[in-house]
Design a protein around this nucleic acid. Structure first.
Length: 532
RNA sequence: GGGCUUGUAGCUCAACCGGUAGAGCAGCGGCCUUUUAAGCCGUUGGUCGUGGGUUCGAGUCCCACCGAGCCCA
């Protein structure tokens, strides 16, 4: 592209070619050079604000009355030096208002008059997006708005690239343009509510951490690079360590390492961290996401239901000030105790009363008949075997109906290779998943701590993998060795942080709660010069 | 992978049955000393995603490809 103008005579910016993006940027670069030529640094870093905008007095509309009118400003009125990004200019001849935004989205309008000659001259060289520092007293305008009468004005940082769209605008702007995700920095400038979601996310994570720290859990960071794939049903990312000449997987769960730590004596342990799964993208799936997994010795999965209720109720209360929330089309989702608890069999039976499911414990007749039933109602895609058939029926008929928080208990053993078998019926495990708004939010179980049982479950996984199941786990010999040293009775749980943040911030897409979500590669369109 | 929708100025979007591309904002030039998405006057800016086809004539119809969004496996 063409670069900065070399000759100072190079205009007189007559309206020729400066309305396209390139022209606008060239124009802004020209201003940078002009300022430098006059001895001003357009990227200054020799001043500090005395206040953040959000700290200024009369931030609330009802407090503005405490400020004097400009004509009544006393000579000793307190002066403030504040900085922010310029987002809008209302010009009116020999006076103008500049709107700047500081941290936390706090807005301030600056009132600038021509008789402050130097500042006024500088203001003519500003563009939307520039960072400025202004100094002066606060006053109340005739429209009862707070404004700072500018005595001094500095350009702190010149924005070379103009902002996309209009930075300040009334009403909600709903657009799902992909530039918002590709250029999140620009998105956040134009849509401050995006940053608000990330702030809430930080609050949620902080509160979760506090919750477990209060209960004497220890936070640990375990390996992300592993030579075996396990801890969940998912396809891993592969990578390679050069020095060791060893292929490695990015972890798909923190489960097995955390249980190793339980074996080692950390009776209560948790990890909040990034998980990687080599799967498709959707509103609810990003290939890297954040989970918390926590493990508590001498607890059962039923204890974890109590704990989970308490945790979610508290986090929701802290973030939203209430435990009843709306999520998109779902109104009045009640994240307050108690959540419903039901077995998977019970829920499938409710949704499909004709299903051959017994009222009490699973009968042999039920065990034999359910796969055939699944075949009939689901068609060819129905899996064979009782456990997979039950899960398929659950996913097809029940899952999306679970809008209010529901603990789905008693999963089939064959889909739960790390869970402890139920004492009452070894065909099921002591496991639950928590569903809210029809989506899985948490997965928990009493941990399998019988090393020989674990070995046979791994063996089943290995044969499933050989049979083509790409999500099956590897045989983790070291983990079995750990269990052979003895693991106390333990229950553990994983919660998807991103989905929890979605629910608690009413975000429609996981892309709205992850700063830099995975996107298809940006393709440069030669015709455009600037890919968008 | 399948279905639906979609791609026009820097941004957001128009353009009837196919008739030769338009508005707001941004930019640029002017006016205005209390504005609130300020206002007023003027003005620059487009190979209509790409490539084919039909037609006297295509942003518009057809095909393919590329990108995006939503839904489904």
């Amino acid at each position: 592209m063409s670069t900065v103008p070399t000759a100072p005579t190079d205009k007189a910016p007559s309206a020729t070619d400066n309305s396209d993006l390139e022209g606008q940027m060239r124009d802004r670069r020209r201003i940078v050079h002009e300022l430098r030529a006059k001895g001003h640094n357009p990227f200054a870093n020799d001043v500090r604000p005395s206040h953040q905008i959000f700290e200024l007095p009369a931030s609330r509309a009802e407090d503005v009355a405490s400020l004097p009118l400009e004509s009544d400003l006393p000579a000793d009125a307190p002066r403030y030096a504040v900085a922010g990004r310029l987002l809008q200019v209302n010009e009116m001849g020999k006076a103008k208002f500049l709107f700047i935004r500081g941290d936390r989205g706090a807005m301030l309008q600056l009132y600038l008059k021509a008789d402050v000659a130097e500042a006024f001259a500088l203001s003519n060289q500003l563009g939307l997006g520039d960072f400025v520092l202004a100094e002066g007293p606060l006053f109340r305008t005739r429209k009862d708005k707070r404004a700072l009468r500018v005595g001094h004005l500095r350009l702190l940082s010149k924005a070379i690239r103009p902002l996309p769209g209009k930075a300040l605008q009334d009403g909600p702007k709903v657009s799902d343009e992909d530039w918002r995700y590709r250029q999140r920095y620009a998105d956040m400038i134009v849509h401050p509510e995006v940053a608000e979601v990330f702030r809430k996310r930080a609050t949620i994570v902080r509160e979760i951490r506090r919750f477990f720290d209060e209960r004497s859990y220890v936070e640990c960071d375990t390996r992300m690079l592993l030579s075996t794939n396990g801890g969940a049903a998912a396809k891993p990312f592969r990578t390679h360590h050069n020095a060791l000449d060893q292929d490695l997987y990015l972890r798909i769960a923190t489960e097995l390492d955390l249980k190793r730590l339980v074996v080692g004596g950390l009776d209560r342990v948790y990890e909040i961290g990034r998980i990687f799964r080599n799967e498709g993208l959707s509103r609810f799936h990003n290939p890297e996401f954040t989970s918390i997994e926590f493990y508590e010795s001498y607890a059962t999965y039923e204890n974890l239901m109590d704990l989970t209720e308490e945790l979610l109720e508290r986090v929701c209360q802290v973030v939203n000030g209430t435990t009843t929330i709306d999520y998109q089309e779902h109104k009045d989702v009640r994240l307050c105790r108690p959540f419903r608890r039901a077995t998977m069999r019970q829920l499938v039976k409710e949704a499909r009363p004709d299903a051959p499911i017994a009222d009490g414990p699973c009968s042999d007749a039920e065990y034999a008949a359910l796969p055939g039933y699944a075949k009939t109602v689901l068609g060819v895609k129905a899996p064979t075997g009782y456990g997979h058939a039950l899960v398929a029926l659950f996913e097809e008929y029940v899952e999306k109906t679970l809008v209010q928080p529901t603990f789905v208990c008693q999963f089939p053993t064959e889909v739960s290779p790390l869970s402890r078998k139920s004492d009452a019926d070894p065909r099921f495990v002591d496991r639950f998943e928590l569903f809210v708004i029809g989506k899985e939010l948490a997965n928990a179980f009493s941990e399998l701590n019988d090393p020989d049982d674990q070995r046979s479950r791994f063996a089943e996984q290995v044969s499933a993998k050989a049979g083509g199941d790409q999500e099956a786990m590897d045989y983790d010999e070291d983990f079995c060795r750990a269990l052979e040293y003895g693991m106390p009775p333990t229950a553990g749980e994983g919660i998807g942080i991103d989905r929890l943040v979605m629910v608690l911030t009413n975000s429609a897409s996981i892309r709205d709660v992850i700063p830099f979500p995975q996107l298809r590669p940006e393709v440069a369109n030669p015709a455009e010069g600037e890919a968008k």
